[in-house]
């Protein structure tokens, strides 16, 4: 047996090991997206008894004039930007604290992971209970502090509902960011700080000159993951507000879900999926580009 045939035999085995996983991945990830591209060119809704008809780009031109779509895009953007920024700041702070040495560090680290591990849909209920207008504990605390007289209808008024959702999301996903950033902090060599401190640098200087630049890859990775997840946020909103009041917390994902499951408008739902997908891919491409440049330099 010569070397070439050994290599090609190894390759054959390699594909054999790889293909089952690739098949499952294609079935669940690639096919639905590709299918959405095709479905988005059809009209298939209750208006035509769910008989698919080819209608070109009609769904897309409908989207341009669909106020509800634009509102949901706006809501998604607000939710994503605010929650991800808050989570990054808080996550970094927590990672910095957990990177110190103190007694009971293991316990605190364990506690910080717990919210990450719990189901979002279930904990969304817990947060809805906390923000409940009649018996909610937030209202009770605010009343005891004398800040409000009557209970606030948190989930029933536009800005407050969004605030409650963002707080719940920050609670749930900041742990993920802290875990990633803590790992990054631990990989920064300690003598770098010592050398810098010898040159008379203060805490802030060593943070901005050493910690932040060296942590940048982890920050961008966390940002990438969190951005994609926040952009597609579904469980939390479905459980806490259902997109209400009056669509003011309706994100694109909630709109997609009702378009398909409630209005049975499959063609339009598919078009919404395609647009969301393309926006997401563009954003991911931009962040990955930054990440690559960072790795090179």
């Amino acid at each position: 047996m010569n070397k070439n045939s050994i290599v090609s035999k190894e390759r054959l085995t390699g594909w054999l090991l790889l293909i089952p996983a690739l098949l499952v991945l294609s079935l669940v990830f690639i096919y639905p997206i590709a299918r959405a591209f095709w479905l988005s060119l059809l009209t298939e809704n209750l208006g035509n008894q769910l008989q698919p008809e080819f209608s070109g780009l009609a769904n897309y031109s409908r989207m341009l004039g669909d106020g509800r779509f634009w509102q949901s895009m706006g809501n998604t953007t607000i939710f994503t930007v605010i929650s991800v920024i808050l989570e990054l700041i808080l996550g970094l702070g927590i990672a910095l604290v957990l990177n110190q040495s103190f007694r009971g560090r293991g316990i605190v680290r364990t506690i910080t992971i717990i919210p990450w591990a719990l189901p979002t849909a279930v904990m969304g209920l817990a947060w809805a209970w906390i923000f409940n207008d009649q018996y909610g504990v937030v209202n009770d605390i605010l009343q005891r502090l004398g800040l409000i007289d009557l209970g606030i209808n948190w989930l029933g008024s536009p800005t407050l509902a969004m605030t409650a959702l963002i707080i719940a999301d920050v609670w749930k996903t900041t742990p993920f960011i802290s875990i990633i950033l803590l790992a990054g902090l631990q990989s920064i060599p300690q003598d770098l700080y010592e050398a810098y401190a010898m040159d008379g640098a203060n805490v802030w200087q060593s943070f901005s000159k050493i910690t932040l630049p060296l942590l940048m890859p982890q920050i961008l990775i966390a940002l990438l993951f969190r951005f994609a997840q926040a952009f597609g946020v579904f469980d939390l909103i479905q459980v806490m507000t259902g997109g209400g009041p009056a669509g003011t917390t309706e994100t694109v994902s909630i709109y997609i879900y009702s378009t398909v499951m409630r209005y049975l408008d499959f063609g339009y739902g598919a078009a919404l999926i395609v647009v969301t997908f393309l926006l997401l891919i563009t954003a991911v491409a931009i962040v990955s580009w930054f990440l690559n440049r960072l790795k090179v330099s």
């Binding site: 190894e10 390759r11 085995t13 390699g14 090991l17 790889l18 990830f29 997206i33 479905l39």
Partner: peptide, 30 residues
């Protein structure tokens, strides 16, 4: 095993982790 195109496959696997499930449920429902 040094398969040809393994970098493309890996990149694909990375990108796929970022897809929100709401983009997939319609195709899967069908």
């Amino acid at each position: 095993l040094k398969l040809p195109g393994e970098n493309v496959i890996l990149a694909g696997i990375l990108i796929v982790t970022l897809f929100p499930y709401v983009l997939l449920f319609l195709g899967l429902l069908e």
